[in-house]
Simulated scan of single mutants.
Amino acid sequence: MQLRIFTEPQQGASYDDQLAVAKATEELGFDAFFRSDHFLAMGGDGRPGPTDSWVTLAGLARETSRIRLGTLVSSATFRHPGMLAIQVAQVDAMSGGRVELGLGTGWFAAEHAAYGIPFPDKRFGMLEEQLAVVTGLWNTPTGETFSHHGRHYQLTDSPALPKPAQSPVPIVIGGQGKKRTPALAARYASDFNLGFAPLDQIAAGFERVREACRAVERDPAEITYSAALVACVGTDEAELARRAAAIGREPAELREHGVAGTVAEVVDRLAWLAEQGVQRTYLQILDLSDLDHLDLIAREVAPQL
């Protein structure tokens, strides 16, 4: 089981807050630092205000040396795919080839309204085209050009530069859709993620992706199967309750839906997730000031996996 740290900076985190967590992520031996891509807090005032995910990751690329860096997930509504391809390729080069692109349709209408971003009712086609454009630009041989004439995007004779350091850049696709999402994952994903899915539906969600892979004659084992779940761990009940209160949650609810409880309980939950087919877990860390929480997971939980 591979453990990654996943943060929600729109809830109220500066770049320096994220840098501290990213450095701890690296020093404590976790595999990756991922962040959401949102511009509006979901409850609370979100002060000091949102930070752009790819600007942030560019900074972290120069401040870290080992951990993977990525989004879970960027919204197809936020950036033109041509510009997104340039941004991700540049951050990948800045990191020495450690970037992963998580991309989805977007869902939070209020943040679009707050910052004047169009939010069409139907967005899956945009996501499909963005993946075609981004990967098409990256895969075009140097010296050749790339064109795309679709419903949502038109590119003509692009030089398809710059190229990322990695070839290919890993792409994370997630969602609980039963047909179109698995088909898209089978075509593009290196990591298929079920974010905050009901635990008893994880195995079936992964199997739908495997079936979609077989339908297009792709080896299902080429994809890493992952889950994103809130994390809240304590050495005892008092510490667990304190950490739960700090993020506005109840221990019982966290135990039911997340990776939460005492160290022994969390080890058991992660072992159970592995039995469901989870190979990688994105631990959603909501209190970015509590670096001792990361230390506890790295010191007491990770060695037992």
Rank of each mutant, 00 (worst) to 15 (best):
H149C: 06
F119N: 04
C232M: 05
A24Q: 08
V230E: 09
K122F: 09
T64F: 01
V21F: 05
A109F: 00
E256A: 15
A244Q: 15
R151I: 00
D121V: 12
S190E: 13
T7K: 10
L131Y: 07
G258N: 03
P182V: 01
G116N: 14
H112K: 11
L161G: 01
H112L: 12
L286G: 07
P50K: 00
W138M: 05
I223L: 13
E275Q: 15
A186I: 09
A264N: 08
G234V: 15
E27T: 10
A203V: 11
E253K: 13
G102V: 12
E63L: 02
Q276I: 03
I5F: 01
T181S: 01
L28T: 05
D52E: 08
L40M: 15
A231E: 11
D92H: 05
V230N: 13
M1E: 12
L305M: 12
A189Y: 00
G150V: 09
W107C: 09
G43P: 07
I202G: 03
A197K: 11
A271C: 06
S53R: 12
V91L: 12
N139G: 10
E27I: 02
P48Q: 10
E250Y: 03
S53M: 12
A85L: 07
R151N: 13
G258S: 03
V91Q: 13
A221D: 08
T105D: 01
Y153H: 07
G12W: 11
G12P: 08
R62V: 15
R280N: 12
P48C: 01
A20P: 01
T235V: 14
A203N: 04
A252E: 15
L60S: 11
S190P: 05
Q166V: 01
F6V: 03
G116E: 05
V266T: 04
F6Q: 07
F108L: 14
F196W: 08
H38Y: 05
S158G: 15
A204S: 04
R180M: 00
D45F: 10
P164K: 14
E217R: 10
L286T: 15
H148Q: 13
D45P: 04
A238S: 06
N193P: 02
Q11K: 11
G258R: 07
G205W: 02
D45W: 09
P120V: 05
R243L: 02
G174V: 04
D45L: 09
Q166M: 08
F206W: 08
L127T: 12
D92L: 05
L72S: 03
E100D: 14
E63Y: 01
A85Q: 03
G59R: 07
L273M: 07
F119V: 01
E211P: 06
Y153K: 09
L270W: 11
R151C: 06
M94H: 08
K178C: 00
R79Y: 03
L19R: 14
G104L: 08
T181P: 01
